Computed example of a mutant assay.
Amino acid sequence: MHLEDAAKQSEAKRRMDLRRDVFLPALQEAAKASHVLGEMTGAETDSAKANEQMKAVTAALAGIHAVGSAETVTATFHLAQFVGEIFAELAIRRAESVAKFTLVTQLALLIDKELANGNALTEMMKACNLQGGNAVQFARVMQQWEGQQKLLATMIEDRDKATLRYRQSIARSIEYLAKNLSKLTELQSGAILAMRRELDLSIDEEVVKRIASEAAAHGANSLDKLTRFLQRNDLDSPSGQPSASVSAGQG
């Protein structure tokens, strides 16, 4: 009898250890899901890193199927499915943002080149004056400089328009995430509570739901402010590479 009891205790401990090995990483990844999605709103985010983070979330939640109850499997499945849908949509939107980001960067480099050309022409006109150059030579350089300045003004205008389009693209991604934040937070809370129950980690569920609801409302409000800011057309042009990404909700 003693040996039988010891064997049962050993088996119970083995199962609990296995559950902890599965549930604890899943709890962490479930809480990080909103952060992973927030990273996808920025064109400057490393694609490989974002994909690896998403794989980690998916793998951890998938592990629940091996040891979880029907309730927990259902909760984590719905969370993983919803996170996957948002991630896929943001990946498509991000591709558009990356193209716009690249254009802004290229225009900024061309502008730097033209600024250098303009400075060189200015120095040529100064040298012409100091060295007593003839009027024809000076006029020729001046004409080149004026043409170069017109080209530079056009390029700056193109960059500003491209920058606005880039910001608006990012704003649309953030707006999409904000619209789904409430449901995302609700699914996160449901999955986390289900896993905590599996591990006998007591917690006031109503408090968790209230905190999650407040976090979702606060996050949505912050994202709305950021969206409206990015959509403004009176912002100063960036001196190089504009960037924007967010972290939202729990995690």
Rank of each mutant, 00 (worst) to 15 (best):
G219P: 09
L230W: 00
R210S: 14
I211S: 09
D204V: 12
L201N: 09
R197T: 14
S202H: 10
I211A: 13
L223P: 14
I203H: 02
L223G: 08
E198I: 03
V207D: 07
L230Y: 00
K209G: 02
V208I: 14
K225N: 12
K225T: 13
L223C: 05
S202Q: 13
V207G: 04
S202I: 10
G219W: 00
R210Q: 13
L223T: 04
E198P: 09
L199W: 00
D200E: 05
E206N: 15
A216G: 05
L226A: 15
A216S: 08
T227V: 12
L199K: 06
R197F: 01
K209L: 07
S202A: 11
A220S: 14
L199F: 05
E214H: 10
N221A: 12
R197M: 02
A216P: 06
E214R: 12
A215R: 12
I203V: 15
F229A: 09
L230V: 06
E205W: 00
E205L: 02
Q231Y: 00
D200V: 10
I203F: 03
F229D: 12
I211G: 05
E206C: 00
R210A: 12
V207R: 11
I203S: 04
V208M: 05
S213A: 09
H218D: 08
R228I: 04
V207P: 07
E214V: 12
D224C: 04
A217C: 00
V208G: 01
R210F: 01
L223N: 03
L226Y: 03
F229S: 15
V208Q: 08
I211Y: 01
A215C: 10
L201K: 10
R228C: 01
L230E: 02
K225M: 07
L201F: 10
D200Q: 11
F229W: 08
F229M: 11
S222K: 13
S202L: 03
S202C: 00
R197P: 07
S213K: 15
D204N: 15
Q231R: 15
R197I: 06
S213Y: 08
S222Q: 14
A212Q: 02
L223H: 04
K225Q: 10
A217L: 09
L201M: 15
H218S: 14
E206L: 09
E214N: 12
D224Y: 05
A212S: 15
E205S: 12
S222C: 08
E214I: 14
Q231T: 13
A216H: 05
A216R: 01
N221M: 08
N221H: 12
L199S: 06
A220G: 13
I203D: 00
A212L: 00
K225V: 13
K225Y: 06
L201T: 14
E205T: 09
D224A: 14
V207S: 07
S213M: 03
L226R: 07
S213G: 04
H218E: 08
Q231S: 11
L201W: 12
K209H: 08
T227D: 07
T227K: 11
A220L: 00
I203K: 05
R210D: 12
E198R: 03
E205D: 10
E206R: 13
K209Y: 01
